[in-house]
Design a protein around this nucleic acid. Sequence first.
RNA 1: GGUCUCAUCGUCUAACGGUUAGGACACCAGGUUUUCAUCCUGGCAAUCGGAGUUCGAUUCUCCGUGAGAUCACCA
Length: 474
Amino acid sequence: MSDVVRTRFAPSPTGFMHVGGVRTALFAWLLARQNNGQFILRLEDTDQKREVEGSAEHLMSALHALGLNYNEGPDIGGPFAPYKQSERLDHYKAWAQKLIDAGRAYADPYTQAELDSFREQARTEKKAFLFRDHRPENPPVWDGSTPLRLKSDPKAYTWHDEVMGDLSTGPDVIDDIILIKSDGFPTYNFAHIIDDVEMEITHIIRGQEFIASQPNYLNIYEALGIERPILATMPHILGDAGTKKLGKRDGAKDVLDYLKEGYLPETMLNFIASLGWNDGTEQEIFTVDELIAKFSLDRVQHSGARFDEKRLEWMNGQHIRLLSIDDLYTRIADFWPASAVNATEEHKKEILTLVQDRMKTLADLPMLTEYFFADPTSDWTMVDDNKQLSKFSKDELKELLRHAIDALKDSEFTPNAIQETLNTLLETTGQKPGILFSLIRLAVSWAPFSPALNDTLNALGKDTVIQRLQTAIA
RNA sequence: GGUCUCAUCGUCUAACGGUUAGGACACCAGGUUUUCAUCCUGGCAAUCGGAGUUCGAUUCUCCGUGAGAUCACCA
């Protein structure tokens, strides 16, 4: 085995990248990164029927979008290329031949109907079906037209899992599993073992669904006389119902959709890592570098966890606040309201600074900033809905706005100067801030909320402020 | 049904066998900010059940219960 850490993410190209897949990939990636090792992408495309067009490209773009970059992979090659199983059939055949020569693999002589009846029989006897109960005494020579099966060596196993601890099973789970299908492609069960050995993978990180077949893999390692990698099993991420493994059917979402909705990649990584892992402190927000430094398999939870979108939202807000304005500006480029098309970079950054603290996702931007770029439509029902303002008549309010126009017209337009002007206005009109400021705020924005009034006015600029106030009293 | 695994607030989780069982999200109530959001303070809220070991059990053991995974020429 290699003495550098080599981990892999080995999805089958049968769909999109959901959060469960991201976590498996993330933990493998973190392990490689924190040990200065390598992270490998391998496509397990041995089931031609289930393969989905474009899925491989999708998986790769999702990994890139999240920053989970791999050192070797189907699109970039590497010392153990190819990294697509469909292009490695000769490797599997060669290893299979070793097993045949050693008398540890044989041709499956049964028809589908015969197999079905064996299964049916097991079901009526309320037993688990074992193919080896029907192992033929004199199997035909394997010509590739029928499945090739392992001649298993049933025994009890105890093995160590870096996450789950010591696991054990009895001999009755060991069976003569299929190594090569009748279409010439290997099964996952066989192919991944060969590839992991040849690619010098040191740690296998995968989902809980493989725990049941792990003893059979151990049996193959032994039959092949090869050392097995370190094993780590991740618990499942559960759907909203909280009871089932998160699958596409339960509304498992494409991780790229979260990015499109304005979640940051680092939020996704932080959140998905935290779902079943913590560093033992009370820290909740981790940068990617902190995750790399602090991650450890032995602190991964044993049980499944639910994906809570509320918590994800909160966490995204936290990560957005961690961003510098320049960084945020770059990332939020696609989210500006259409009306911002002619705004300068400087102006947009100024506005971004005002609203950064109140964004939960990047997609909140239009709602928060629309009125900075386009004149809002007056909506006096907002005044009526305001507990304090609704006590005044419209004429009284317009009179107040006229005072505001006069004062602001002569004011310097910096945040501080505006604040002074507003404070003076409070004295001259004898109004409470809750009334005067709310009124001005509404008259210039007609929005349910906005940043501090002086900052808002400053960002709008004097001409716009005066013009909007005049529109309001017209 | 067989096999395997898991089990702390509604959710994510912390707790060398000794804590008033801690934190975070959500929720509720106050407070600050002109408003909203943010922010601050406080509140609500959990060890699945039963035995056993122990001076002492969330923690170790056993038995239940519940949940999940798996039992494909899918991965």
